[in-house]
Design a binder for these strands. Structure first.
Lengths: 147, 147
DNA sequence: CTTTCTGCAAACTCTTTGCACTCGT
DNA sequence: ACGAGTGCAAAGAGTTTGCAGAAAG
């Protein structure tokens, strides 16, 4: 049971590592195809799972159906824009407790926590400050906050 | 454009309101069928969406692919057991800040936040304290923490 | 050479949708 | 009677999987 270092695995990891926008599996697939045109979507999924099991990428289940992938595996949180669906990394707030006293007291063992903020990113506030909700076409930019 | 009060909508809301285990759409469907055997899964999805838009239920996207529904719409957080996938409600920790200073400073408008803890629930700790990972069959119980 | 991994396509899971019919108002 | 809502079934999106052949060690 020895793991092999294949071209595909490395290309997929590189695609996630160099991405700044928390790509979905489909987006990773599109990017890897530019370097390795014969790669298949199934292989992308299989390797993303492997990388996740190895702790080299983090899987994010935000409010959408699709899983997004993040190569920043240290403790940090996320902001999701409700208008353009962009995802930004957020340094964990200083006061944020690592444990939840109520849970610990009730016998729950906590291994991890995820904190996600939802709202409107600066770009979308500028783009459509008055309208109720805008289509996200062309507004897929991402910024990184205090990494 | 007037909304009607149908038997189906009320039965679906009741199923979620009286549930203690954050059911998925399929589970809501199974429960509503006991009262209203002719209901369809499509209707369950349509009404869960409607209830969510009305703010009467909250949709949870935890680490699974399936959406789960919660009739407790006040601010609270969740604990997910990594062994049995049970979900428990958790009162928001006292120190938890409503705003994230780093985000506010960068011009992000935050409307909501979700905080989820992952770990092992007391029942699973008792059931298999030594094994690495157990099948979740028969361990679907849920407890509620400090509601 | 052996074993893991790949590409392909089909299967699977969860959710949405079009249509004719039903039921609230 | 009008039109929002329903049941059904088919379509859709995202993900997983079985298998024969390719390639890493």
């Amino acid at each position: 049971v020895k793991e092999r270092r294949t071209r595909q695995l490395e290309a997929i990891y590189e695609a996630v590592r160099t991405a700044v926008d928390h790509p979905s599996a489909d987006e990773v697939y599109a990017r890897v195809r530019q370097q390795l045109p014969s790669v298949s979507l199934g292989t992308v999924y299989r390797n993303l799972q492997k990388l996740s099991a190895q702790g080299r990428v983090r899987v994010l289940h935000l409010k959408e159906r699709v899983a997004r992938y993040d190569a920043l595996v240290h403790e940090h949180d996320h902001f999701v824009c409700e208008r353009c669906d962009a995802v930004a990394d957020v340094a964990r707030p200083a006061g944020q407790p690592t444990e939840c006293p109520a849970l610990a007291q009730s016998g729950y063992a906590v291994h991890a926590q995820t904190l996600t903020f939802y709202g409107v990113c600066p770009r979308c506030q500028r783009a459509a400050p008055l309208s109720e909700r805008r289509d996200n076409a062309g507004l897929t930019g991402v910024e990184r906050v205090a990494p």
